[in-house]
Design a protein around this nucleic acid. Sequence first.
DNA 1: AACTAGAGTTAGGGACACCTAACTAGAAGG
DNA 2: CCTTCTAGTTAGGTGTCCCTAACTCTAGTT
Lengths: 148, 148
Amino acid sequence: MILTRKAEDYLEAILNIVREKKYARVRDVSSVLGVKPSSAIEMLRKLDGKGLLVYRKYDGIVLTPKGEKVAQVIKERHDVIRDFLELINVPKSIAEMDACVMEHHLHPETVKQIGKMVNFIKSAPGYPEWLRHFEIFCETGRHVCRGK
Amino acid sequence: MILTRKAEDYLEAILNIVREKKYARVRDVSSVLGVKPSSAIEMLRKLDGKGLLVYRKYDGIVLTPKGEKVAQVIKERHDVIRDFLELINVPKSIAEMDACVMEHHLHPETVKQIGKMVNFIKSAPGYPEWLRHFEIFCETGRHVCRGK
DNA sequence: AACTAGAGTTAGGGACACCTAACTAGAAGG
DNA sequence: CCTTCTAGTTAGGTGTCCCTAACTCTAGTT
């Protein structure tokens, strides 16, 4: 199944909405994605055609198991990337935006390595210390520990 | 000046070609970007119209100072991102590809923080050690240093 | 100088994702 | 029951970026 970047955006958005409300409406989807309802409908029809969700006129939208699986994968990527960006002190709102972009285009291998790196740092014996050192480095350009 | 992702790709590709050859030809550009010559010409005309490069029929292509400045910025982003990905052991070819994608879409703040993080790690007192520990962590999921 | 191979160009068209404007369905109040 | 308001829908159109097919130009060979 080859999906465009935008198709993935729609699936992910719908997953998030459904998690809160049981089903999504055209309006929900279009407002989350910042497009007009007519644009959303066009995509919903395409995704319905691919069996990723069920869209019937004037009715709620739900993901099929297949669509949910795809959306889940994207959401996981998103979370990994956002965690990483927040870890290196990218402001939350920017981290969120950029994770949205990266989640679609990065090679799975890349996402995997980013995830490992986040785990490596977070689970390191001196974790909070590492963060503090990084912050100081960002401000001063110097390492506080062991010389220099 | 608002540029599309693709326009940026063209400028960056042309910068790389010009660095080697003084001027670029339609064929060079189209083959680097994996598009047909006719597609490249269409974009070249647009970029010429915006004053980012000089394109005259049947002639070589060069960047204007303005175009070169834009291309340079993109190339720097590209390099920062590629360095980071290689640092965390993403295979070189994938790092190159993914840097191409990320260079266009990431917020400058994000690129800045990635750059700082790369510097932080590379200039740390125990740099090669850090890399080795990360590699071991990737394979075993364990920290070798100080307990655990 | 004529020929020809390959580079460059133009015209015309398609997919994608978006829009506006105009129409329709359905729920909620009188 | 009828009106009305909002959500939903359809039709038609735009911009971007790509393509193929057919043409033209340029440079190198003879």
